[in-house]
Nucleic acid binder design. Sequence first.
RNA 1: GGAUGGGUGGCUGAGUGGUUAAAGGCAGCAGACUGUAAAUCUGCCGACGGUGGUCUACGGAGGUUCGAAUCCUCCCCCAUCCA
Length: 381
Amino acid sequence: MRIGKITTPHGIIHTPAFIFCATKGAIKGVTMEDMRIEQSQIILANAYHLMPAVETIHSLGGFARMSGWQGPTLTDSGGYQIFSMGYGSVSEEIKGNRHFQNTKHNVKITEAGATFKQYTNGNLLFLSPEKSIEIQEKIGADLIVAFDECTPYHVDRNYTEESMRRSHRWEKRSLMHFNKLELQKNDETLPQALYGVVQGGVYEDLRHESCNFINNEDFFGQAIGGSLGATKVQMQSVVATTMQYLRKDKPIHLLGIGRIEDIFNGVELGIDTFDCVHPTRLARHGGALIKHGDADIDTSHINLRNHRFIADDTPIGKSCLCQTCRTYSRGYINHLLKNQELLAIVLIARHNVRFMNDLMAAVRQGITSNTLQQVKKMWLS
RNA sequence: GGAUGGGUGGCUGAGUGGUUAAAGGCAGCAGACUGUAAAUCUGCCGACGGUGGUCUACGGAGGUUCGAAUCCUCCCCCAUCCA
């Protein structure tokens, strides 16, 4: 475990840090002012989703400026969409959902890149390493990610290996194209930093091989991606194994992970940054993040739709200082949810954002003062 | 007073002799959600019993039938129109 700083043209990120997902350019339900007020450090957007709008974003000064966020940003490459557009969400893929059973053909992978058939209009959309880097360059994020394929869980070892090797080739092309574009930049265009992504699925030898590849390439940072397994135990084991082989002198990001217990597990293994849709998605479904001690049952979130909150006059978090908890009760939010009032989502999302930021601050403090285990107990026991 | 249409589970609304404890939808009660195809999805949702099951159900009362939410008779109620 370690604390650190990542310096970007838009500011310094204190790590371990959580990165919020503004996939299409907005944090769902939260304004950028509130993101700042609730002490967020960095947000992320996605090259796949923003590809059609890339010229607009560029002409409006890039993602950070256009959105009003102004602070540090990261863009994802679109590699996750190779997985999600064909298989659905991580849990849907693992559990075997019906809806996405016949959508694999919506994504075609060749050595050149990936062609997506958009489910909305049937238009074809092509992403390659070079294309993804160019889009991310135009979006202007401080941190960007090499183009890879996020491998599903339900594929065999052969496919995982094949895919990993292709991802390596794609990442190498990403790096080459990135370096070329960086060299062409003048004083007015801000430098960016590129992350490589470790693949290899749940197979230790493949993870090892992938780490070796990433370790030896000139990436600014290293991200852990791909399938981390079907269970929490397996995920922890895959991440631990990967961390064992990954060099430690660069920032390390864990892609897509961000439940409370996973943050502690990751931090203990030396992860510097996390990103996850969980806090904001959970909020849209009525779920508020909570310290275990703040709930009457063993849980890391409460569903404010539940009948038991109907007359609850207390805030979501007993000691939370977010704008929501300063003013609104669980009972009121329960009422808003039952009446489909949009404000419910806004209030919960804002709380969840602050919750994650408070969590990360507590984690950093815990590392600094060598009391992480006590911090963990406060948040999880 | 007359004419017509209708009364189905909390609401809405299918169903016109058996495979119907009764489609859908809503509401209700839970659960899931991890580089966002998601303000989404899944399950339960007459009553009693842990399932199996048992009982009570389609305005009310009779009747036809092996069998009725569905057909017949009378009654009650609602909507619209005419006096």
